[in-house]
Design a protein around this nucleic acid. Structure first.
Lengths: 146, 146
DNA sequence: TCATTTTAGTTGCATATGCAACAATATCGA
DNA sequence: TCGATATTGTTGCATATGCAACTAAAATGA
């Protein structure tokens, strides 16, 4: 903390937060308009889909999604109730669960993606060239080194 | 929506959301550790501070912070209860309120800033040069054209 | 082996947020 | 002017989230 962050750092930081919030809001609005569940559900289902039929340990899912465990616990309850995911007892660890997506879950994912994708298209791809996207990606990559 | 967003666009988008969430989490953790209120309070107080002694209309505040009105309404209740902000009736518009920061609010802002700033320092400035920050800022600027 | 500590997950309770309905005032248009 | 509509803000209710305490099982280590 020898030098305070520069004006530039502060304003860039603020831009980053603001941009991500505006984008999120916009995607949420689009999903709601299409009468689909929130982005949070999409994120979970996508990770489960990626994990394939073996599923994922609950804590692994939490780490990927940056979600605290108690929060995740209840979201999975919901997904399970809706028949979008299944929760098994873990064979190799008596404490744990394994979560897997169902066919219903995959269907929902497939319905949500076009809506989500259209927003990425509008918000993102229209405003940055491929080269600029690559620049942005590289800069964000550096930031995630923390 | 002629072409779906490219892989690059999608992954850069994901990076953006993820980075901003990780950073926010980290700042929240630091504030909590210092027994200070959440980032949301800081944001409000900062906007009020910027607005000066004239204060701001409640809806203006909401626009700046991207907060829905009902949410803001109750946050201001809290700030008011804690003596951090004042709510006046607006003279020129009988429906409206004017919100202004109090001296207590300014003091809190001053206590929160070093904690916040230290996180920006660590998370942000250590990983990007000035030139890179400027690049990032410019790219985010383009994105906000939406 | 077996007591101690860690890890995985759930639950109760308090707080925060979203949504829709509402009240009050301002603005617009015939 | 005055009725219809839009804007500003609040509130009740449902849902979501955070926090701390809890259970149960694994890992550690003497």
């Amino acid at each position: 903390m020898t030098t305070k962050p520069s004006k530039l750092a502060i304003s860039t930081w603020a831009q980053l937060l603001r941009t991500s919030q505006r984008f999120t809001d916009q995607v949420e609005a689009a999903l709601k308009h299409a009468q689909l569940p929130m982005l949070g559900w999409y994120d979970i289902l996508l990770e489960l889909h990626r994990a394939g039929s073996d599923g994922l340990r609950q804590f692994e899912l939490g780490e990927k999604l940056l979600l605290p465990k108690h929060n995740l616990s209840r979201r999975i309850d919901k997904l399970q109730q809706e028949g979008l995911a299944e929760r098994y007892l873990c064979e190799s660890d008596g404490r744990g669960n394994v979560i897997a997506i169902t066919d219903e879950g995959k269907k929902l994912l497939a319905k949500m993606w076009p809506v989500y994708a259209a927003q990425i298209e509008v918000l993102f791809e229209e405003n940055l060239s491929g080269a600029e996207q690559q620049q942005l990606s590289a800069l964000l990559e550096k930031l995630s080194k923390v």
